[in-house]
Design a protein around this nucleic acid. Structure first.
Lengths: 151, 151
DNA sequence: TTTCATATTGATAATGATTTTCATTATCAA
DNA sequence: TTGATAATGAAAATCATTATCAATATGAAA
């Protein structure tokens, strides 16, 4: 029954292993990009034309809640999704976002210093503002090589 | 004709000094909060009931383009706006965002180290990825004091 | 296996923020 | 004061996402 780590995880938490859920995981597993719900839907239709967009959204919502995918907001009106622990990707990374073509580059360079400082800052801020920090985001916005030439 | 620094700026760039634009600037000048378009619209109606929501959006778009306001995306479905160089606010700051009540706390503590590292990282990333970085965002998401108790 | 309670689905309608359209009005230089 | 046109407000259109709800698929129990 178990098809992969993620599906086992689903099962473990008491969720059913359904067709749309398997398809969404497989699509995310095989890309390095940050796909929107629509992107995923289009790919899913090619695998199983009877799948509904609603299910894609519901699946992504569920996966986000159980920490199987991460939902990103890169300043577009639509959200983008990324599988957590995707073997194609670096463990932990931050993002460079091209404001023109919306391409997202993952980077994990210099993360040690960055994350160290973030942790330090988090601790200080938590105390000062009595704020319980759950996660942080670091986004660099700008222009990718291509768009620098075009703009 | 000129009413303030911002209005002069508008004028200088060749834009007209209209009623909705003055109102939006004045509303933003007098708050420390990050207001949504709707928030601003409600306040604007009290000053001039004939103002349209469309104009609020148009004004905010213009102001964002000419760097008079900064548009923020804190993970809600609606955007929030903040006047750049607001005398009520710290020059440069990052944000703590409560994921439950959506309150945003500005902080400028420890910014020196943070900004230094960001700049260093930006330089390295620019070179490595040939990416022209325009700006960055650092958001800490979590629960504010109140919501920690309620959640 | 077959049955069954119910978790999950897909089609459709609804939502809510933001944009577009377009005819009317306000602004400012001449 | 006038006139070109920038800017407005009302209403309709978009677009991503959610809610509704009847139909279906899933997995445990018989």
């Amino acid at each position: 029954m178990k098809d992969s780590f993620w599906q086992e995880h689903l099962c473990y938490l008491g969720f059913r292993l359904t067709v749309p859920r398997k398809i969404v995981i497989n699509i995310l597993k095989e890309t390095e990009k940050h796909l929107s719900a629509e992107d995923i839907y289009v790919k899913a239709l090619k695998i199983n034309p009877s799948i509904g967009l609603t299910s894609i959204y519901r699946t992504l919502l569920l996966f986000t809640k159980i920490n199987v995918v991460q939902k990103h907001d890169f300043g577009e009106k639509k959200a983008r999704y990324e599988l957590i622990n995707n073997p194609l990707k670096k463990e932990h990374h931050h993002h460079l976002i091209c404001t023109r073509c919306k391409t997202v580059i993952d980077y994990a360079d210099f993360m040690k210093e960055e994350v160290e400082l973030m942790t330090k800052t988090e601790n200080k801020l938590s105390k000062k503002y009595h704020f319980k920090i759950i996660y942080h985001t670091v986004h660099f916005y700008g222009l990718c090589v291509k768009c620098q030439k075009l703009a």
